[in-house]
Amino acid sequence: MSTSMGGGAADKGKGGAAGKKNGGAAGKESGAAGAGKGQRSRAGSGASAVGPPVADAGVPPLTGGRAGTYVLLLVTGVLVAFAGTLVQAAWFPGGLLLALAGVGGLFYGGGRATGTPAGVLVPGAAWLVTVFLLLGDVRPEGDFLFGAGLGSYIFLLGGILVAVICATAAQMRVAGVRYGRVGG
Score class of each variant (00 low, 15 high):
T3Q: 11
M5V: 11
A9L: 09
D11A: 11
K12M: 13
G15L: 14
N22V: 05
G24Y: 10
A25N: 09
A26N: 13
S30T: 14
Q39P: 02
R40F: 09
R40W: 10
A43R: 13
S48T: 12
S48I: 04
A67S: 08
G68Q: 09
V71T: 08
V71Y: 01
L74R: 00
G77R: 04
G77L: 04
L86N: 09
Q88N: 11
W91P: 00
A99N: 01
G102S: 07
G104M: 02
G104F: 02
G110L: 11
A118L: 14
G119F: 13
L121W: 01
A126H: 07
W127A: 00
W127L: 07
L128N: 06
L128C: 12
V131H: 02
L133P: 03
L134E: 07
F144E: 10
G147M: 12
G149Q: 12
G149H: 11
G151H: 10
S152L: 07
I154C: 01
F155G: 01
F155K: 02
L157T: 09
G158W: 02
I160H: 00
L161V: 04
L161K: 02
I165R: 04
A167V: 05
A167P: 00
T168W: 04
M172L: 11
V174R: 11
G176L: 13
V177N: 01
